[in-house]
Simulated scan of single mutants.
Amino acid sequence: MAEGKAMCNAAPFKFTWRINEFSKRTGKVCSEDFSAGGCKWRLAIYPKGNKVNYLSIYLEVAYPKNLPEKWSTEVKFSLAVVNQINSRSTVRKDTQKQIVFNASGKNWNWGFAFFIPLSKLKNPSEGYLVGDSLMVEAEVLVYNVQQNSLRVYTEEDTEAKVLSRWAELKERVFLWLLQLLQKLPKLPEHLFQGKPLILKQDWHKEKRN
């Protein structure tokens, strides 16, 4: 199954966030948590812009410090500021590709600093702020989740990717068992009561002689 086809057939999780009293908000404002693909997420918005004169919006992993150190996931998502007067003027931006999120480092959030100019957002005639209320939408599609060194697959994973990673996992387990066998100590000779251990290959040689 081709990855592009799987993306089209999979249904992303949709989340809508209404921010009331928007003009009074400052700094970073976070939404309530929501679940998608077995993970906890939230939206983060900067009403005054994240050091820019634009509305800034991000998708974040909720509570990344509570996740395993090697936790990671691949996500494709879109964010939108809804035009409450004319839906055709809704501003929507998407990642265009799968983004890797992880619990460590700087990749626990991803988004758009330059989402929409603040001057346009605050203009009442534009239709984004109505009654000092802003509506933000998110569509999140999670492809897989990796806990430590093993992956937890979601419904959005393609059949080809699952089979490929299953083969990868079997190979890793085989190599691990091989390394374990090499580390095992040799059995002491007294366990054989003084009789030498004859391998099948040696037995054939003796028989031919």
Rank of each mutant, 00 (worst) to 15 (best):
W108C: 03
N123L: 10
V136M: 10
T26P: 00
R25Q: 15
V61F: 05
N86T: 03
L134H: 10
Y63I: 02
F22Q: 02
Y58P: 00
Y58G: 02
V140K: 12
A36G: 06
T95W: 09
I85S: 14
R25N: 11
K120H: 07
E137H: 08
D132I: 12
A36L: 06
V140T: 13
N109P: 00
G38D: 05
Y143C: 00
E137P: 04
V91H: 01
A138E: 05
K65Y: 06
V142W: 13
K122W: 08
R92P: 00
N109H: 07
E32D: 14
Y63V: 04
G37D: 10
I99H: 08
P64E: 03
E32G: 13
L79Y: 01
P68E: 03
V52Y: 04
D94Y: 12
F115E: 09
Y63T: 11
V140A: 14
Y46P: 06
N83D: 15
W108M: 01
Y58K: 01
S125Y: 03
K28C: 06
T95D: 12
K106W: 01
R88C: 11
V130F: 08
Q84C: 11
Q96M: 11
K97W: 02
V61C: 02
V81D: 02
W41T: 03
A62H: 14
N83S: 14
W110R: 08
S89E: 15
L129D: 13
L141V: 01
N144Y: 14
N123D: 15
A138F: 09
V81R: 01
F112Q: 03
V81G: 01
A36K: 09
F112E: 03
K51T: 08
G38Y: 06
L121D: 06
A103E: 08
S149L: 14
L67T: 05
G37N: 10
Y63W: 08
S35G: 05
